[in-house]
Amino acid sequence: MQYCVDAVVYLVDAYDKERFAESKKELDALLSDESLSDVPFLILGNKIDIPYAASEDELRFHLGLSNFTTGKGQVNLSESNVRPLEVFMCSIVRKMGYGDGFKWVSQYIK
């Protein structure tokens, strides 16, 4: 059975820094999956409402994404072969941040 994937939303616990290496390994596997090569990726760093949760820059660093994100809509990707990939920080409990991420990724769904 073949599945059609419009986008990948990858949720990372920004407070659980001890598991960042595991999160990076799983994300890298998804990013290298040939069947997902043209699928946009939204990475959500959750739990920013908890003190000492990772910042966006810290999460980008640990996931190896410091130079691989595509500008949160500030870069026109419509005429390039670059896969949309971006990090948004959020709090699911406080209902904040993820709406911007979903709005961003929705513009790249075919």
Rank of each mutant, 00 (worst) to 15 (best):
G45D: 01
G45P: 02
G45F: 00
G45V: 00
G45N: 04
N46C: 02
N46E: 07
K47W: 07
K47F: 00
K47R: 12
K47S: 10
I48Y: 03
I48N: 05
I48L: 11
I48T: 12
I48E: 06
D49G: 01
D49K: 10
D49Y: 01
D49N: 03
D49E: 08
D49M: 07
D49H: 04
I50Y: 09
I50C: 10
I50A: 11
I50L: 14
I50W: 09
P51H: 09
P51R: 01
P51M: 00
Y52M: 09
Y52H: 14
Y52W: 12
A53S: 11
A53N: 07
A53F: 02
A54K: 03
A54Q: 08
A54W: 04
A54G: 06
A54D: 00
S55N: 03
S55T: 14
S55F: 04
S55V: 01
S55R: 06
E56P: 05
E56Q: 11
E56C: 00
E56W: 00
D57Y: 04
D57N: 11
D57C: 07
D57M: 09
E58M: 09
L59S: 06
L59E: 02
L59M: 12
L59Y: 03
R60D: 04
R60K: 15
R60G: 02
F61K: 14
F61L: 14
F61W: 13
H62M: 09
H62N: 06
H62G: 02
H62V: 01
L63S: 06
L63W: 00
L63C: 09
L63G: 02
G64T: 04
G64E: 08
G64K: 06
L65R: 01
L65W: 02
S66Y: 07
S66P: 02
S66V: 12
S66C: 12
N67C: 11
N67T: 15
N67P: 03
F68C: 12
F68R: 13
F68L: 15
T69S: 05
T69I: 11
T70R: 07
T70M: 10
T70P: 02
T70Q: 03
G71A: 08
G71L: 07
G71Y: 09
K72H: 12
K72W: 05
K72P: 05
G73P: 01
G73S: 10
Q74H: 14
Q74K: 15
V75Y: 11
V75L: 14
V75C: 11
V75K: 13
V75G: 06
N76V: 10
N76W: 08
N76P: 02
L77H: 10
S78F: 12
S78V: 13
S78K: 15
S78L: 15
E79F: 14
E79I: 14
E79N: 15
E79W: 13
E79Q: 15
S80N: 10
S80K: 15
S80P: 09
S80V: 10
S80T: 15
